[in-house]
């Protein structure tokens, strides 16, 4: 079961998750001398260059060649070695997806994908740089585990989880520094989650940058007397079904919000799970309300991060609105 936070202390951070993850990778390099890092010419953007500066013989910058880089990483990992592959989500999860599927997941290699610019967090760069299908691609692959930390501390923990989990692990990271909500004392695990706010009226489930928006939504709803529970589902695959169910049985309403296509995102997974065996139909729960926010079968666009996520319906304001609608029973 997830730990429950009394009150989350939000602090503006100076470190985007891509940086925190790479910083932890450098520290980890001292503990573990066996793993190597493959980069595809965006080391100054993913901060993997920090590792290269410290361990030049364990850092391979393969140039702008994501497909070949991923395949070379598979080769280096063939006998069990752990290899971190760094790059932007769009290129690693799409240009190199066949290699990830057939030659990393299938042979169950210890390849850890450091994937930056997840979702619309690369808002200003436009669609070609926005990984809005990465969770779908990666979580569909057998053997692959998927993590999506929301702040500095969970990003550092994600690196440790990736290293300590056998087989392929994909970690979705973000371009922009947002908010810190955890501390060094918080612990994270594969298949875990954190309840960041308790509430009995609706369960808001999210991951990555949208966790902060869910907390914002909960604040807005509280002003109207609606108490929202907020779950950070940082382990997207496998996700923490136990915590979700416990919460859903109490609130009888679940709203998943994600910076991703709705289709084949975490919301689809959770929706299917809740429908499958009606696992919530106990303790007198007769019906459950469910909705899901994300990109509605559309591409994003360039622009200010907040304006873009608001337009595509995953800002705190939009989540609060959807929660009200769901609770009032209004159809969209």
């Amino acid at each position: 079961m997830a730990s429950v936070k009394e009150k989350v202390q939000l602090r503006k951070t100076d470190s985007p998750t891509r940086k925190s993850f790479s910083e932890r990778m450098v520290e980890y390099g001292e503990i573990d001398h066996e793993f190597v890092v493959f980069e595809s010419d965006i080391g100054y953007s993913t901060y993997s260059y920090l590792f290269g500066d410290k361990y030049p013989d364990r850092y391979f910058n393969m140039g702008i060649a994501e497909l070949g880089t991923m395949a070379a990483a598979a080769g280096m990992a063939a006998d069990g070695r752990t290899v971190v592959v760094s790059g932007y989500g769009v290129f690693l999860t799409m240009r190199a997806v066949e290699v990830v599927r057939s030659f990393i997941c299938y042979p169950h290699l210890n390849v850890k994908i450091l994937s930056s610019h997840g979702g619309l967090t690369a808002a200003i760069d436009g669609v070609t740089h926005q990984a809005t299908e990465d969770i779908a691609y990666m979580s569909t692959l057998p053997e692959m585990k998927v993590l999506a930390p929301c702040d500095k501390f969970s990003a550092r923990a994600a690196f440790d989880i990736a290293m300590q989990t056998p087989g392929p692990v994909f970690t979705r990271l973000m371009r922009d520094p947002l908010w810190d909500m955890y501390t060094e004392k918080d612990t994270f695990r594969l298949g875990g989650s954190h309840v960041l706010r308790r509430g009995g009226d609706i369960t808001l489930v999210s991951y990555g940058d949208i966790v902060f928006q869910a907390l914002e939504a909960a604040d807005l709803l509280a002003k109207e007397g609606i108490e929202a529970e907020v779950i950070d589902m940082y382990s997207v695959k496998p996700f923490d079904a136990e915590t979700l169910l416990e919460s859903a049985r109490r609130t009888k309403a679940v709203l998943v919000a994600e910076n991703h296509q709705k289709r084949n995102g975490l919301g689809y997974e959770i929706g299917t799970f809740l429908l499958k065996h009606y696992p919530w139909k106990s303790a007198g729960v007769k019906s459950l309300k469910f909705d899901h926010l994300g990109l509605e079968d559309t591409f994003g666009e360039s622009g200010n991060y907040y304006k873009v996520i608001d337009k595509y319906g995953i800002s705190g304001r939009a989540i609060a609105e959807a929660a009200r609608r769901l609770l009032s029973g209004a159809r969209r």
Binding site: D125, G126, V127, H129, E301, S302, G303, N304, V308
Partner: peptide
């Protein structure tokens, strides 16, 4: 350039 709802996206469209 690169602004919300502009025709001039961050990369050419």
């Amino acid at each position: 350039l690169r602004q919300f709802e502009s025709r001039l996206q961050g990369h050419p469209v």
